[in-house]
Design a protein around this nucleic acid. Structure first.
Length: 554
DNA sequence: CCAACAGTTGAAACT
DNA sequence: CAGTTTCAACTGTTG
């Protein structure tokens, strides 16, 4: 029987460096069906703001356009994959289901179900590594099945493993044939949400799931309006799509000095136009940029470079290695990786506003509110109203652009958790999940554990100064002047600490502290001292998240 | 087993 | 006075 291939796009919205796509095409299918399942899980169980949707939709649209030129299209269905695939496989007489492997816990569980469905339908599943540089399963196996928690451990584990060169982008794809949409519409279960963690974004009516095939059987992705989101709130200036990803990559690679001598800790978090880092993370997240393409392009530039190059972990390949490490940590821990409870690598600290669980150990969604005072502190942090200009600028940039420089993420994360507010990193990760365009559960939860000294990093007495840290990179307060415009006329001297400016300076700047911009919400030094004392106590317990489960079992 | 060391900082004490 | 060095509430990895 001639192969009939369903290519399931998930982490690979691209044609270049697409090993799974190439593999499917090598089967020489008589019919080829590119599919995207608009999965309710990502819409109702994961926090997601308008910017990430905008970026995703642009990336999907561009890929769809490229497939159109080759006489095909990206067929978007609005259903849970487990409801959708049994029907598609049958109606389209699929012989091979092909996809790029996704090493996140939700994806693994989902794909296991899909594999069973495929097996029952006598369909061969072809899953190919491509979202990561290394095969994450192999990395964790090499580490005796344990999660990896250091760059060094990753280095040892991947010794001898090759990173393949990316394959060429296909120039043509076979056509799909009869879609049998009427039968599909009849057979696929209609989805109704039980809960919705994104209510705060849905100002309009949510019609996205009214039909499995979309309005007029268009098989288009839902618009922001269909999701009930306000399009005006999608304010990011980072455009989605593979073309833009490659344009940005090429642009960076042309600057051989910057590429070959890149040192992350020395890049300024105050630069925003353009930023001091590559800002390629959103593209990698959705697979608009192939990570192996990025890796090899950087490597080639560094190989050919005459001068002295920077080294890991500070250089560009080193950044990608952190990503690999987080994936390998996440895979080793499993579903509990994004929370404290049940997470064996995560230190238990008596943070405020931790996740809540019912008697069966299921997380209660939405989370019941904590003490009013704590919730108010979280809100101030979330919306950039803490009274610390650099922190507020960074948080407002996050909300507006869906992106923040890595070192600014350090600064705001330190403040929320071990630095000043002593609020659980779970809350911080949730806010980042909501607003980041590049949100990836492995890297995001991983970095939050790192910054809160819950795992990966332990020197809790190394703290970020809300005024000193930004000043190290930029005395002029560029980022503050851009994202906290009410402070833009303060002199440099006071830009990170306007509350210290004398009254006449505040008047001249047209901004009275406590009226036009908030007073600092805490005494930075005093709060930090208190936090460090608590961290010392909590560290002495030497307790990890898996112990919370054991106690429960008794 | 132990020692050395690295780990995306800050502040104070130094040249 | 600007730039550099040192130490400070620790832990995990490596040899």
């Amino acid at each position: 029987m001639a192969p009939r291939v369903l290519h399931w796009f998930r982490t690979d919205l691209r044609l270049h460096d697409a090993p799974a796509l190439v593999k499917g095409l090598e089967l020489k299918p008589e019919a080829f069906f590119p599919v995207w399942a608009w999965d309710p899980y990502f819409n109702f169980d994961c926090p997601v703001g308008p910017n990430r949707y905008k970026f995703l939709l642009e990336s999907m649209k561009e890929l769809d356009g490229k497939l159109n030129k080759m006489g095909n299209k990206l067929h978007v269905f609005r259903a849970a994959p487990t409801d959708l695939f049994p029907v598609l496989l049958k109606q389209w007489k699929i012989t091979h289901l092909v996809y790029e492997r996704d090493p996140a816990p939700y994806a693994i569980e989902r794909d296991e179900s899909i594999k069973k469905i495929a097996q029952d339908a006598n369909v061969e599943v072809v899953d190919i590594v491509g979202h990561t540089l290394y095969d994450t399963d192999a990395v964790v196996e090499k580490h005796k099945g344990e999660p990896l928690t250091s760059a060094q451990a990753l280095k040892s584990a991947v010794k001898g493993m090759e990173i393949p060169r990316p394959p060429q982008a296909p120039k043509e794809v076979p056509k799909a044939d009869d879609l049998h949409l009427d039968a599909i519409k009849k057979e696929v279960k209609h989805f109704k949400p039980e809960h919705d963690v994104n209510e705060e974004h849905r100002k309009g009516k949510m019609t996205a799931y009214d039909s499995v095939t979309g309005p007029k059987d268009s098989l288009e992705p839902p618009t922001l309006a269909e999701l009930g989101y306000d399009e005006k709130e999608a304010t990011t200036s980072i455009p989605g799509g593979e073309d833009e990803a490659l344009r940005r990559l090429n642009n960076w690679m042309e600057d051989k000095d910057a590429t070959a001598t890149f040192r992350k800790p020395q890049t300024s978090p105050s630069e925003y136009d353009p930023p001091a880092t590559t800002q390629l993370s959103p593209y990698i997240k959705f697979g608009a940029l192939g990570v192996r393409e990025f890796y090899w392009r950087v490597n080639d530039v560094m190989d050919e470079y005459d001068g002295e190059t920077s080294s890991e972990p500070e250089n560009l390949p080193g950044q990608l290695m952190f990503r690999e490490m987080y994936f390998a940590a996440q895979l080793g821990v499993g579903k509990a990786y994004t929370q404290i409870r049940g997470n064996k690598i995560c230190r238990v600290i008596d943070w405020k506003l931790c996740n809540a669980y019912d008697e069966d150990g299921e997380q209660i969604i939405p989370r019941p509110k904590g003490p009013k005072e704590d919730e108010e502190m979280l809100e101030k942090w979330k919306h950039g109203n803490t009274g610390f200009p650099f922190l507020d600028a960074a948080m407002r940039q996050l909300k507006q652009e869906g992106w923040m420089h890595h070192l600014a993420r350090h600064c705001v994360a330190g403040f929320l958790t071990r630095g000043q507010l002593y609020i659980s990193w779970e809350r911080g990760a949730e806010v980042f999940d909501r607003y980041l365009v590049d949100r990836d559960p492995g890297s995001n939860a991983g970095n939050w554990m790192w910054l809160s000294c819950s795992c990966f990093f332990a020197q809790y007495f190394r703290n970020y100064g809300m005024t000193t840290f930004p000043a190290k990179y930029d005395k002029s307060g560029k980022l503050v002047r851009k994202y906290c415009p009410e402070l833009k006329d303060f002199p440099d001297k006071f830009i990170y600490k306007p509350w210290e400016a004398p009254e006449d300076v505040q008047k001249k700047a047209g901004c009275i502290i406590g009226k036009d911009y908030p007073e600092p919400m805490v005494d930075e030094k005093a709060a930090n001292k208190e936090c460090m004392g608590k961290m010392k106590e909590q560290y002495a317990k030497k307790q990890y998240g898996d112990s919370l489960l054991k106690r429960k079992a008794k």
